[in-house]
Design a protein around this nucleic acid. Structure first.
Lengths: 344, 344
DNA sequence: CTGTTAGCGCCTTCAC
DNA sequence: GTGAAGGCGCTAACAG
């Protein structure tokens, strides 16, 4: 007899051990595990007791081998270190865990090879669904892998040819609003620093930047648009470069993600007074923006909600694979703080 | 004949289909998958070609059922939204992915129930190893689950009775240094705002806070120690409360994680001039601290490295389950910036 | 309500 | 160097 609490490091018990201990068949044990109603109350109690006593935990691999269900959803993001995507993950996990699904996060570090690798393991692990934020819409290797996958997919804010539900943020209206705000303050040269235009959000923002200028009857100086990369250094370098122009911008819109940090860092280094000498609007980093001195006006969106909605879309399609594909657009907002003013 | 590129939504091919297509037996296909050397070069080529042609991807569940290996490591953290833990995840993933392992992240939101739930699914999924950062050392349910798990475990910075490798940060020396620095500037009342002392790092920091005072021959006012929780609101409330005392602190040490945000927010709201009226030292948030105005002196540690080392420890123990348990202590550093000065 | 039985897809001896 | 066959742990009919 083994004392309860004793650590037994033998092979893990199976439903057969449980069946033996509870004096039922393996089929009955299985029904108890699966929560089938076709088990007598008293029998169920005996089985549950036996499971606990032996320390039985059903083998997920064996189950999913039989059922073709892994209770697993993949999330592919460019960078887990970005608070923006960490929020997406948190939102998705919040919706998935209560539904009995586990979220498997893959961070590609914006490497196409890593994206492909993740999509392949997603297939090998037979994930039940996938939420993807690609780092480059033009990479056809990832598209290829995505199309190979038959499980439900949700695409986050990308324009790609994949049979999938899509969640996108509203970018144009809010960026037009931001640019319009600066223009109405009197700014005529506005710098825009952002990620590569090979992803939809950046293209949308640039388009809005242009249309806002057009609406005000103002010309656009393309040298003020710096949308090519997405890291701290890029933000810092482009900011420095912009302000070194012979006719430098009097206002800056910088983001998303890490870019903003670089922009602020450069501004600090240059000793620029915000908003007296340069106005600043941030994109996608409200947490930090709000506590800077001065607090920075910024474009914000609810990434947790995006993750949550994405998870719901996946679950809904798992429940009904034939439903129509949706394209959900979630709102963004311009949060006014104290980092903008009239140009000097 | 099916055109290449056509989407086939039938059942996924198995090694039998591959075997048929390559005119070999399933055993040979299996050997090719496993990279066994006992396969003729030419045969291997035929099999590989067949796999690609049919779009075969080995079923991970079936494999792990046979091999008792899931190529999966769990990471349990209190909060994926905290940059600190996101870094741990990134570090661990960086070490695990190249080794062919997938990192399964669980964020408990500091709920013991969620920690237990994660540990249970870890067992059901037969994860090959586990890296855990518990939110409460005193919770015996989590300890119980941890001890049930026979797979290799790495514990992050907690004092708990579990057979596991341990990685911890050096907290005392650097906190003594921080407090000593403030004392040497002339501060006699220093507020300390931090997480609950039910986790080791906080206990260590409080102990260091006391010993630094003792070393300077100064008394400690326990009302200045506010180490009970870990969120933005807590930081904001305690800061406000501390500064409302009849004999308020002239310096604040605040962290880790979200607490720091709250501290800064309160300071801004109160219109406190840093460091003229209050000196400030942050804990664990160098990214933000560096761009604040003024940049904030803070205690920093390399969380990515911690995640990386944790992953290495797990892998090493998987390779050799009988090696001695290690306890690794990684350094912290006090980064001097411009947020401290003599008291007013 | 419960027992029996046949695989799920793969790896792994054991022969050849 | 390759084929044949058994079984990993579980679920899902099908009987009873």
């Amino acid at each position: 007899m083994i004392k309860s609490g004793t650590k037994v490091t033998g092979p893990r018990p199976t439903i057969r051990e449980v069946a033996l201990a509870a004096d039922v068949s393996t089929g009955t044990v299985s029904r108890v595990i699966g929560g089938s109603p076709r088990v007598a109350k008293e029998t169920r109690a005996r089985v549950v007791a036996a499971m606990k006593r032996i320390g039985f935990q059903p083998n997920a691999a064996a189950r999913s081998m039989r059922t073709n269900v892994t209770k697993t959803i993949g999330l592919l993001i460019p960078d887990i270190l970005s608070p923006t995507f960490a929020r997406v993950a948190a939102g998705a996990e919040g919706a998935l865990t209560p539904a009995g699904y586990m979220l498997l996060i893959g961070s590609s570090n914006r490497s196409i090879a890593q994206e492909v690798a993740f999509l392949q393991t997603a297939q090998q692990r037979r994930m039940d669904g996938l939420i993807v934020s690609l780092s480059d819409e033009a990479a056809k290797e990832t598209l290829h892998e995505l199309n190979l996958m038959t499980a439900p997919k949700v695409v986050l804010d990308r324009d790609i040819a994949v049979e999938a539900d899509v969640i996108q943020s509203e970018h144009r209206r809010v960026m037009e609003q931001a640019v319009g705000h600066l223009i109405s303050l009197g700014h005529r040269r506005i710098g825009l620093i952002g990620p590569s235009q090979r992803i939809r959000p950046s293209r949308e923002r640039v388009a809005a930047y242009r249309s806002a200028h057009a609406a005000a009857g103002l010309p656009v100086d393309d040298r003020l648009i710096r949308c090519d990369s997405q890291n701290v250094d890029f933000g810092e370098i482009e900011t420095t470069d912009l302000l070194a122009m012979s006719d430098p911008p009097t206002a800056l819109i910088g983001g998303s993600g890490d870019i903003f940090l670089g922009v602020v860092r450069a501004l600090r280094t240059l000793g620029v007074d915000i908003p007296r000498s340069v106005s600043l609007i941030g994109v996608d980093d409200p947490q930090i923006a709000g506590i800077l001195g001065p607090p920075v006006t910024s474009i914000a969106r609810d990434m947790i909600r995006i993750g949550d909605e994405a998870a719901r879309l996946v679950l809904a399609r798992i429940a009904d694979p034939n439903r129509d594909f949706r394209r959900l657009t979630l709102p963004s907002a311009l949060i006014m703080r104290q980092s903008t003013a009239e140009p000097p």
